[in-house]
Simulated scan of single mutants.
Amino acid sequence: MRPLWRCRNCGAEWPCQPARLSLLVEYRGDRVGLLLYLGALMAEAGEQLARSNPDHPPDLHHRFLAWARVRG
């Protein structure tokens, strides 16, 4: 749900666990593509969320990118 960036199904911050799993399946074999997609969404979310709370811009790296990085 934009501009709040919450999951329409569970209400948690997007990407929630089910969304993360779905994205990993959808982008299986294309981790770079996944990271590019998430980076673009992170930029959009950052702009929208900063408008709602301009005194505390959100740090969205962990929420959008850290979980999707290749491990090991």
Rank of each mutant, 00 (worst) to 15 (best):
L24G: 11
L41V: 10
G33F: 07
R8K: 13
A50I: 01
N53H: 08
N9R: 14
H56T: 14
L60E: 02
P18F: 06
Q48W: 00
L24A: 10
P15T: 03
E26M: 11
P57M: 04
L24M: 13
R71L: 10
N9S: 15
R51D: 03
L65P: 00
R6L: 15
L21S: 12
L21H: 11
V70C: 07
Q48K: 08
W67G: 01
V32M: 08
N53S: 10
A12L: 12
L21P: 00
V25Q: 14
D59H: 10
R31A: 12
G46M: 05
E44D: 09
L4T: 15
L38P: 04
H62Y: 06
N53G: 01
V32I: 11
P15R: 02
L23H: 10
D59A: 11
P57W: 04
L36G: 04
L21W: 01
M1E: 13
R51S: 09
R51K: 13
N53R: 10
D30G: 01
R8L: 14
R2S: 12
L24T: 04
Q17E: 15
R69E: 11
R20Q: 12
L4R: 13
L23Y: 10
L21Y: 02
H61W: 08
G46S: 04
V32L: 15
W5E: 08
G72I: 04
A45E: 05
Q17K: 12
R6I: 12
M1A: 15
R2K: 15
P57Y: 07
Q17F: 08
H56L: 13
H61C: 05
H56D: 14
E44Y: 00
P18S: 10
G39Q: 09
R51I: 03
R28I: 01
A40W: 01
R28T: 03
L60K: 02
R2F: 09
A12G: 06
L65V: 06
P54Y: 09
G29E: 04
A12C: 10
R20F: 00
L34F: 08
G46T: 05
L65E: 01
